[in-house]
Amino acid sequence: MQLVAFYIFAALSVLGAILMVTRKNPLGGAVALVVSLASLAALFAMLHAEFVFILQILLYAGAIMVLIIFTIMLLNLSREELKEPPVGKVKGLFILAATVVGLVGFIRVLRLLPEGTEYVAPTFGNIEKVGTMMLTDYLYPFEIISVLLLVAIVGVVLLAKKII
């Protein structure tokens, strides 16, 4: 049962990723990526990571991807502007081969991993637990991330302004 669900969501996410990489129009690609991200969220839920599951939908699918789609629609690129300079056949094949070789090598390394445990504590991945952890063990990284976000906001405002 779990295995079937895993394969469905895994297939969806891989399919969405492939479509994203291959579609000519970035908007179609963005929609495919949303499907991929949503099925990844389902996989997070299967891994008992409820907090990450909610954040994945809220942040990735709900905010970042909407921002990307908003940008695509704002630019509203024409067919000519979307035309990419052709990648040479040799170069393309080389990139593909390098990626596949890298992937196969990586998966072979992954084989060495131990199986890991089956047991899951009932409170594993709870929002309370993760939140407590974030504000105790990871307090400094947390604060640094907030500063980083602030810097990003200021930077974007500066970039977006025509006259400062």
């Binding site: 990571a49 990735y60 445990t117 047991y119 594993f124 947390f142 991330i145 810097v151 990003a152």
Partner: peptide, 25 residues
């Protein structure tokens, strides 16, 4: 999930925050 420690969740949250900043900029 397989090492029974939730540090991974916190790190995943940090990655998402980073991705949000990256997306905006």
């Amino acid at each position: 999930r397989y090492t029974q420690s939730m540090d991974g969740h916190v790190v995943a949250f940090f990655v998402m925050a980073l991705a949000a900043a990256e997306a905006a900029v």
